[in-house]
Design a protein around this nucleic acid. Structure first.
Lengths: 356, 356
DNA sequence: GCCGTTTGGTAACGCGCGTTACTTGCGTTA
DNA sequence: TAACGCAAGTAACGCGCGTTACCAAACGGC
């Protein structure tokens, strides 16, 4: 355990870092003066000359503030924490990106703590609790919880000690503020797009009908149809597993069920993976997209939607925006401001590509 | 700016947290005793009775150690930092997952700092420098740099102050230790698999021939062929953009160029996105996979490989393992142990699915 | 010549904790 | 009985910094 210099980096720089005291000495002033200048306090009176002397010393010595010590003294850490299963199941990484970018803008640091993928019923409380605990030990000023897919969750008790915002999920018991996608509006815009293209008979490949995504998107679809004086034919709504295979099978069923003149001319797939399977079913039958059958997806999973041929028109889940909004909401909360609403809906924009 | 309680959480818990002093008072002992017990020092002599009294007090008061203060006093933060563009371009997210899980195991905290996607030549030094600086202000004990795709990078100067390991990239100037995929072995195993299936004429859809991935994978392919007494026909290696469209076009060219008897019976696509396009080209020509043409990919982008029909046999990039190995290497480095090698190659396992 | 005010600073405390050096009481041994 | 050793703890310093209270000199007004 001999604490020798590691082979990897210049040993010299490794000793106890340079502190404010060193800077003060080098500049020939008190440490207080240095502190005042570096945190540029408005009501501090330091002459322009010593100011520059201090800056020079900082530069000369390569001084770097110690964030931990600062946090300890000032009683604010400038940290937010996010507990998420997203890193485990990277579908919604952009939530992290959005949150992190926004935090960076606000000069906050986002601590990311991993959580196992939790199932909708009883999340793996063990790991989540541990993660939350760790974050609280770091004295984060606020907490975010993010899920990979829109659903209800139960958050650890300790959450109560600090402002908390949920992203892409909602609090099944209490009433923590949450940011979720506006599934209904998304479903609506998808079907409106199909109607606008002249389609009147639209097949829907559904998800598990219990989950918020399915409920909302279908509701939106119904609304759009109603406005056009149409109804959603229950026969045209077929469920499938949320995979490409599931989409393939569902599409086969729906396409083979009717004679050509009754066949739907468009498919609304409730996610892009299923759309991917639907593509295969359509192509297999010698039909073209969008000529014979138009397809519209949901989620905008870039890797699929942007690379399918033809590229898939779809409705995007606003992950990045949700992340950013989460941080903004948290900032408001920690500042003691009232929040806008308990549940904020974020719009799901239509992304036009080539399948409609 | 009135510091009222936020509407969101019980105001009571918000006051200055409970400290070791409170615990000590509650248990009727000195703070030192509490410290000794909580960090269970081996050579401290505390009776079993006071021990339990202290634990009871901890529990009763809901004491939670202050990580920042501990770091300050003990001069070790238990933090590693990772600077990465991965969150921006989520292709290689599993690097983060691997690193984070390993760090969690080691009871370290991984601070993730975002960096803009950097191009191969001159990275956006501004943002990387700022991110690195931020991490050093947190007094991280070590630094990781991770790239979304295997390439050379330039890291900020300040990196020298702390042990540093590169993941999925290598140091273009100096000689920082790095963890990279074994592209050559990966290319080899892919082609070996095709040979084993009886293919003798193998088309290769290449990437930009300059990048390490292309160089290594092609080299591996050549080796595998040589061992079977075959040569890599340069005519059968066609470059393409690293997209589905690029793969589609390349596959068309290669398939249409020869009469049926001379046509390659297998395609090695140097990434899965291009394989996705190749699928279309093959199907369009009425050929089946793998009956008429076998396809093997590279990267194992789950979203594509696991959902293509038939599912794509491919070679996986070991992102998660690289992340974990990066943290392990960093741990060794910070402990002053010598590192195994400057460059560690991580194997790329073959994932059998149904396209060969 | 005296007092009040501004300018330009400094001394000292405390944030929560790790750690070292020291103290006290008690059973053992010579 | 004195010297000794050990178990069981405690007092006090310092980590790097924010912050409050205080001080000395210069200056202006009457």
């Amino acid at each position: 355990m001999a604490k020798t210099t590691t082979p990897n980096h210049a040993g010299a720089a490794r000793q106890r870092g340079v502190t404010m005291n060193d800077v003060a000495k080098h500049a020939g002033v008190s440490r207080t003066a240095v502190s005042f200048v570096l945190s540029n306090r408005e009501n501090a009176s330091i002459s322009e000359e010593t100011r520059t002397r201090i800056y020079e010393a900082v530069h000369a010595l390569g001084y770097r503030p110690n964030a931990g010590a600062r946090a300890l003294a000032s009683q604010r850490s400038d940290w937010y924490g996010i507990v998420t299963e997203i890193v485990t199941a990277p579908f919604a990484v952009n939530i992290i990106k959005g949150a992190q970018d926004q935090a960076w803008l606000d000069r906050k640091f986002l601590l990311i703590a991993p959580s196992d993928q939790a199932d909708a019923v009883g999340p793996n409380q063990g790991m989540e609790d541990a993660a939350t605990e760790k974050l609280l030990e770091q004295r984060v000023e606020g907490l975010l919880y993010a899920a990979t897919f829109h659903r209800g969750v139960h958050v650890p008790e300790s959450t109560k000690e600090v402002p908390t915002v949920l992203i892409n999920c909602f609090d099944a018991d209490g009433k923590l503020p949450s940011i979720v996608p506006d599934e209904r509006a998304g479903g609506r815009v998808a079907v409106e797009r199909l109607l606008q293209a002249g389609h009147r008979r639209i097949g829907v490949i559904n998800l598990d009908p219990q989950i918020p995504a399915a409920i909302g998107r279908l509701e939106g679809a119904r609304e759009a149809l109603a406005e056009a004086g149409l109804e959603l034919d229950p026969e045209l709504v077929v469920p499938g597993y949320a995979t490409a295979d599931g989409g393939y099978e569902a599409a086969c069923r729906i396409l083979d069920r009717y004679p050509q003149e009754d066949r739907p001319t468009a498919l609304f797939c409730l996610n892009d993976r299923m759309a991917m399977g639907a593509y295969d079913a359509i192509k297999e039958r010698g039909l073209t997209i969008p000529g014979d059958i138009a397809v519209i997806g949901f989620d905008n999973q870039e890797l699929i939607a942007a690379y399918l041929r033809p590229k898939l028109t779809t409705v995007a889940l606003p992950f990045e925006k949700m992340g950013a909004l989460g941080v903004q909401t948290l900032a408001a909360l920690t500042a003691g401001q009232p929040i806008v609403a308990d549940q904020q809906l974020v719009g799901c924009p239509l992304l036009e590509r080539s399948s409609v």
